[in-house]
């Protein structure tokens, strides 16, 4: 059987809220090392990779590898019934056709159980190489969210250019154009507000803002978003979930015809 208890149930709520508009349904893969998901959006432009480590759970048991297909909208409906401070336990029997979500309030005076029907999902699993990237930018998650939101009011795509000291986000649209530059800033007294740039080579790539806006729904999960870029490769936008794992998004670049 599979059973996993997450004391901070809110994390699971936030993860599902972050991906449910990008992905309709997906297989959640459980094995002894943890709980993970890999899925492409319906247009096959982006890829979501979630991994929650077994040791990030308060209790974790997975007797055999299982892949549980779920409709994200249904999962979201159920998780919305959990309070933000509830612990969430997921349970499923081997070869079962449902997964049970149990919500426990902090004082355990309220216990609720919701069963979600599992579904068979035929999904293509991609092999993601562990790339060295030309540039890595770690910036406050809320700042990244604001940048992609603001630029979306002007244009549909963003050119992200990283140099040694700064990252520049630029867009062009019918009404004009916009550029936002963030300088490296390693303020030791305010680590949550730091912007750090690690660069092997200057890089400049163009991406659809619609997807970056969607990725930014993961903002509540982490203080920072980490952007990793290499010439002509998909951008990796990572949100580290402290002590539990990470939620990563890959987005294929736009190329000039």
């Amino acid at each position: 059987m599979f059973e996993a208890r997450l004391a901070q149930g809110a994390l699971l709520k936030k993860v599902v809220e972050a991906i449910k508009d990008l992905i309709e349904d997906a297989n959640f893969d459980c094995n002894s090392s943890g709980f993970s998901l890999q899925a492409m959006d319906s247009s096959h432009v982006s890829l979501v990779a979630l991994s929650l480590r077994a040791d990030g759970f308060e209790h974790y048991r997975c007797d055999r590898n299982v892949s549980m297909g779920m409709k994200l909208a249904s999962l979201s409906k159920i998780l919305k019934c959990a309070n933000g401070d509830d612990a969430i336990t997921m349970k499923s029997e081997d070869n079962g056709d449902t997964i049970t979500f149990m919500f426990e309030s902090p004082e355990q005076e309220r216990l609720s159980e919701f069963d979600l029907k599992l579904m068979d999902i035929d999904s293509e699993h991609l092999g993601i190489p562990d790339n060295e990237y030309d540039a890595t930018v770690k910036l406050p998650a809320a700042e990244f969210q604001r940048i992609v939101k603001d630029l979306s009011t002007i244009g549909d795509t963003v050119e992200i250019s990283v140099t040694k000291d700064a990252v520049k986000f630029g867009t062009t649209g019918d009404i004009g154009n916009a550029n936002i530059m963030c300088r490296q800033n390693k303020a030791a007294d305010k680590p949550d507000e730091s912007t750090e740039i690690d660069i092997n080579e200057a890089v400049s790539l163009t991406f659809a803002l619609r997807y970056l806006n969607s990725f930014a729904k993961a903002t509540p999960l982490s203080t920072h978003a980490v952007l990793k870029l290499s010439k002509e490769l998909p951008i990796l936008v990572e949100y580290h979930i402290p002590e539990v794992g990470r939620l990563a998004f890959y987005l294929a670049p736009k190329i000039e015809d």
Binding site: V45, H125, T206, A208, A252, K254
Partner: peptide, 14 residues
């Protein structure tokens, strides 16, 4: 004009 690449063209099937 620019063209959107497909994500699976980078990572391929595993």
């Amino acid at each position: 004009s620019s063209r959107q690449r497909d994500i699976s063209s980078f990572f391929g099937g595993a």
